[in-house]
Simulated assay, not measured.
Amino acid sequence: MKVEVDQARCGTIGICVKECPEIFRFQEGSKKAVAVIEEVPPRWQAKCREAAQKCPNGAIRITE
């Protein structure tokens, strides 16, 4: 599974960073999140999906 954060939709809320810090981090000098690992290891996929579901702006895109 692959994941990315749509920078235009990211609202700097940080739910993804709190829910799944193994995958998401804030950009340096910004409050927008980025995926630090594009290809999500199986052990973090459930947490990553949960973070995507909780994102109020729908900024996290997951592809299988």
Rank of each mutant, 00 (worst) to 15 (best):
F26I: 03
F24Y: 14
N57C: 14
E19A: 11
P56D: 10
C55E: 06
E4F: 08
I37W: 07
F26K: 13
R25A: 12
Q27V: 08
P41V: 13
D6T: 02
R61D: 10
V5F: 06
A51P: 11
R25H: 14
C16S: 00
C48D: 07
E38T: 15
C16Q: 05
Q53H: 06
G58F: 06
A52W: 01
Q7K: 12
C55M: 02
K47Y: 03
S30C: 11
T63W: 07
Q53S: 13
G14M: 01
I15V: 04
Q53F: 07
I15N: 05
C16N: 04
Q53L: 13
T12E: 15
R49F: 09
V5P: 01
A35C: 07
P41A: 14
F24G: 08
A59R: 01
K18Y: 00
P21D: 11
A35N: 05
N57P: 01
A59H: 01
R9E: 10
R49P: 06
Q7R: 08
I15R: 04
E39T: 14
G11D: 13
G14P: 04
R61T: 15
I15E: 02
Q45L: 15
C20N: 09
R43L: 08
Q53N: 14
I13N: 03
P42F: 06
C10K: 06
Q7L: 15
K47W: 08
E4G: 03
V5Q: 01
K47S: 14
G29V: 11
N57K: 09
Q27L: 15
P56T: 10
P56L: 10
A52C: 05
C48I: 06
W44N: 10
K32Y: 03
I37A: 12
R43C: 01
F24W: 09
F26Y: 15
I13F: 11
K32W: 00
V5R: 02
A52I: 02
E64T: 05
K31D: 13
R25Y: 00
P42Q: 10
C55S: 02
C48M: 14
P56C: 06
E4N: 13
C48N: 11
A51K: 04
W44S: 06
R9L: 15
T63I: 14
T12Q: 13
A8G: 07
P21F: 09
E22C: 04
A8D: 15
R43D: 09
K32C: 03
C16L: 07
K18T: 00
V34R: 12
K47A: 15
K18N: 04
Q7I: 03
V3L: 08
K18G: 02
G11T: 13
I62L: 15
P21M: 10
Q53E: 13
K18M: 08
A46F: 00
A8M: 11
M1Q: 12
E22Q: 12
V17Q: 05
R43P: 01
P41D: 08
I13M: 07
A35L: 10
C55G: 05
K31A: 11
E38W: 06
Q45G: 07
R49W: 11
P41T: 13
R43M: 04
A33H: 04
E39Y: 12
E64W: 01
A8T: 14
V17P: 09
K54F: 06
A52K: 02
P41C: 10
A8C: 03
A52V: 02
Q27W: 02
S30L: 09
C20G: 02
A46L: 09
G58R: 03
V36P: 00
K47N: 14
I60M: 07
E38V: 12
Q53R: 15
K54L: 14
E64R: 10
P21Q: 09
Q27I: 04
Q45F: 12
